[in-house]
Write a protein that binds this DNA or RNA. Structure first.
Length: 258
DNA sequence: CCCTATGTTCCCAA
DNA sequence: CTTGGGAACATAGG
């Protein structure tokens, strides 16, 4: 579900709503989500993101790390009932933050360190294509899977991986070790362009993605291949192909992408 | 019943 | 030991 642009969108909105405010109450509504210590009365000092992971930094050094995974969503409500499928809530004097999650795959980790974050580089603050090239050279997996490896680059998921490779004109099936330095330079530049634009669009609402306030994103209007199996490639007119890689739908143009 | 779904982790085989 | 692939997780919708 949420990839970097969607997580970044929520992160910016969360900052505006909860940073500097004192928590009235924190409640786990589904034990499977994770454990949490007393948060009552603590102020939220910052909400930051790395890759697809959120960190809420609280007064006293405690942090909450959230991973939304496939169907986790954050909602801000100034009143009203607990929404269906809510698994967690943080209440504040001016409203409540809910986490809902149909498939119950999201996770929460409460800790005092930085250990909740993925190890990969952040694509929005200067990916070094030489470094990526060096890592990719030693791996033999398909480049699409490589791009989605959160230990290398943090934040790219299934939709943006297909889009990045289409705009880079590289086949998702290529072994990561087969790409040249020049090709990585292109991929890194395109990644930055796509993710920046998707953040400005507040994410991709393909099925049901909505931001903190229930608004859809706009990046679905810019998608070039994702979800377009059998339709004409926007560049050359050939039929867009849908393959399956590691169990995930993978969209590409067999003519444009080499 | 079949398949699909914006993610991550764990197990197993090579 | 490393690497990569697929199942598992859980639920809804077409």
């Amino acid at each position: 579900m949420p990839e970097l642009p969607e997580v970044e969108t929520l992160c910016r909105q969360l900052r505006q709503v909860v940073v500097g405010t004192r928590i009235l109450r924190g409640l786990i509504l589904d034990e499977r989500l994770g454990k949490m210590e007393g948060l009552e009365g603590k102020r939220v000092l910052a909400v930051i993101r790395r890759g697809k992971v959120f960190q809420f930094q609280l007064e006293g050094g405690l942090s909450l790390f959230f991973q939304l995974r496939m169907t986790g969503r954050f909602h801000w409500q100034e009143g009203g009932d607990i929404p269906p499928r809510a698994r967690f809530l943080l209440s504040f004097p001016h409203g409540s933050l809910f986490l809902t999650d149909v498939r119950r795959l999201a996770t929460l980790r409460c800790s005092r360190g930085e250990d909740g974050f993925p190890r990969g580089c952040e694509p929005l603050d200067g990916l070094d294509h030489r470094r990526i090239f060096e890592i990719a050279r030693q791996r033999r997996l398909p480049v699409k899977n490589f791009l989605m490896d959160q230990k290398v680059i943090a934040g790219i998921g299934n939709i943006y991986a297909s889009e990045i490779l289409f705009r880079s004109r590289i086949s998702p099936l290529r072994r990561s070790s087969s790409l040249t330095l020049h090709e990585w330079k292109k991929i890194v530049r395109v990644t930055r362009e796509i993710l920046d634009r998707a953040v400005r669009c507040r994410g991709t609402s393909i099925s049901d993605w909505k931001d903190l306030f229930g608004r859809k994103g706009e990046y679905q209007k810019h998608l070039r291949v994702y979800g377009r199996a059998g339709k004409a490639c926007r560049r050359c007119g050939a039929a867009v192909r849908r393959g399956v890689m590691s169990g995930r739908g993978t969209f590409y143009c067999p003519v444009c992408q080499k």
